[in-house]
Design a protein around this nucleic acid. Structure first.
Lengths: 345, 345
DNA sequence: TTGTCCATTGGAAACGTTACCGATATCAAA
DNA sequence: TTTGATATCGGTAACGTTTCCAATGGACAA
């Protein structure tokens, strides 16, 4: 079947290709009658500009990329949805790419940016193995927005970030549990490596215990298994089962992610432990899901929508050079629900 | 910063551009030493081929698109993840696009295909307003794979489909509930419009009741609200609250999606109804999530992974003209778990 | 009338790649 | 030596756009 190009449209309308180009790109230097005539022909013949040709010619491809590590976490799904909407508003395309566990995200970024001539990158994920040297090598007009932990070893001038102070908010949650009378608090932690959210949230947990003079009991610190997706219900479930086998007494369980908490809930249930009567359960993230479980889950809500919107806005601002790189920190909101309760006397 | 092109690499290596092209595309007509030399230079200078230029020149852009209606449903998220992996294996890019409620999916497909010169399209979604005429207009080498309900009014030769016989499997679920002794079975149904999964699952529900001589009680048929995302926990929750306000007695509640069921579970809980003691609850889809709720959810598992793999395989087969359009139907698996029980005498 | 300015247009050169076609070198066979 | 086949390579024309630059024509002032 016949696929019209800009030349065909030009011929049909008896004008030059540049005129058609002006028409479709809303250039001012064009007669309104001519433009209308062209637009009609375009509609009639179903002409759609070829994106590759456009991006090849344009200095600026109107597109950004979102790189996600750990798509399994619904928290990121929500963020992506909002980011996509924001891009659409600005008539930008959004390229979505997953980063596998064994890939380096800056390398992937490098490749994607060159391949597609993108204007910017948003990183989504809790753990990044950035190195300053690699980031400097990212040649193209580039914005590096990270959601989650902020790499400490890199000059803040090189990237923007959007994050919640995981360590502080995590401590806040544990403080709340301690306030309820709990002292034997177990923690379910994912990816407790350098610069990861897991590590920060674990540190917050330790901070809170120390402030209250409670000794950190290593037997109550449970790390998720590497073989599985770190933030998955299955991992939460299995890790909790593992914890229960240790026979170490605890009255509260704090999972550093809602998904983990939901898996944990199941494991507790199967072990015959009631929530919150026998064990108080707390999550982190504030997923919609956490509000519909039975019992509903006490959690730290991260302002997803706001964060996603700001990420996008910031990215476009930096691209347009309206602003320098910024680092925004959000407050999380402690949502107290049914899964946590005072420890019985 | 300096961004090398194929010409630069050619100059650096003292060869022609076509030789470099041969090297990066694994053409046979090239000396292995030359190739190695070129590959080294490419690594050293960080050359990455420009995707736009490639796709512009190539007759066949190595990419397909996945168009999703209703991304909120985690069922689709799983499918997309698998499809993406399959594409990666074949060195194809996957373009992901959402279809808004007010958009026509064939129009979107048309536009995307022309814009990006794609080789094929996969539709994901329960409801499509396809028209034969529009599909025929899809000019480019094109494959149309639909997952979900199959449009009945369109020649089967024009597209491929991957689906579960929603009507039959839905009836199977209701049969199972009837087998447990339930006769007052409420149904939570989303999007009960023409050609939608919702409608088919509702029909299956009616079929099963009729076979057992149980009268269909319209007061037990609850439609989700249009304002919300049809397949969301919130909608399941609100619709169930609405059902409960009707004061119509029921001993089982069948939600046509697990997400809805989880919302329903919450509403039942708040109303003081125990699952399964007071009300048996059943879902549909077989999400991972359904296995971790308390109580775990009886559901109809659709073979997501298999379906996603077959969809991709089929698409690539049709693109390569290895096969004609096909229509594959899968069996769902009835997963009986804790949320359903025999009706007490 | 002439010159100047503005609005509108067309032509053509890129953008970076692939694919075709032809060129060269090498080597074996005649 | 000549011929032909084979392996390897380079040049160049596209692919469909955008963007610059120059051209045209009309309006208006000098």
């Amino acid at each position: 079947m016949f696929e019209p190009t800009i030349k065909d449209i030009a011929k049909i309308c008896g004008v030059g290709v540049s005129t058609v180009s002006r028409a479709i790109n809303d250039h001012p230097d064009i007669n309104s009658e001519t433009k209308e005539k062209i637009m009609n022909a375009i509609r009639e013949y179903g002409y759609v500009p070829n994106d590759s040709a456009r991006n090849l010619k344009r200095v600026d491809a109107k597109a950004i990329a979102v790189l996600v590590k750990g798509i399994a976490n619904p928290f990121f799904t929500s963020m992506i949805t909002v980011i996509e909407q924001e891009c659409k508003k600005r008539h930008y395309a959004m390229e979505l790419s997953h980063i596998e566990a064994d890939e380096n995200e800056v390398d992937v970024a490098q490749k994607v940016v060159k391949e597609k001539r993108l204007r910017g990158i948003i990183f989504l994920g809790g753990l990044f193995s950035h190195s300053e040297e690699k980031i400097k090598k990212l040649s193209v007009p580039f914005v590096f927005s990270t959601v989650g932990s902020i790499p400490e070893n890199i000059s803040k001038k090189l990237y923007s970030s959007i994050s919640v102070d995981d360590r502080r908010e995590s401590a806040r949650m544990v403080n709340y549990l301690i306030g309820l009378g709990h002292t034997k608090i177990a923690i379910l932690v994912a990816e407790a490596q350098e610069e990861s959210v897991g590590k920060l949230r674990l540190e917050g947990y330790c901070d809170a215990l120390k402030v209250h003079g409670i000794e950190v009991n290593p037997k109550l610190i449970c790390q998720t298994k590497d073989e599985l997706s770190h933030f998955s219900m299955e991992n939460g479930y299995l890790t909790t089962k593992n914890l229960l086998e240790r026979k170490e007494k605890f009255t509260a369980l704090y999972a550093v992610s809602d998904v983990l908490a939901i898996g944990a809930r199941r494991a507790l249930y199967e072990a015959g432990l009631r929530v919150p009567e026998d064990v108080s359960l707390a999550g982190y993230d504030g997923l919609d899901m956490a509000d519909y479980t039975v019992p509903s889950l006490t959690t730290m809500r991260q302002p997803v929508e706001e964060m996603a919107k700001d990420t996008t806005r910031l990215l476009f601002d930096v691209i347009a050079k309206r602003t320098k790189h910024q680092h925004i920190t959000y407050e999380a909101e402690l949502l107290i629900r049914e899964s946590t309760a005072k420890i019985p006397e």
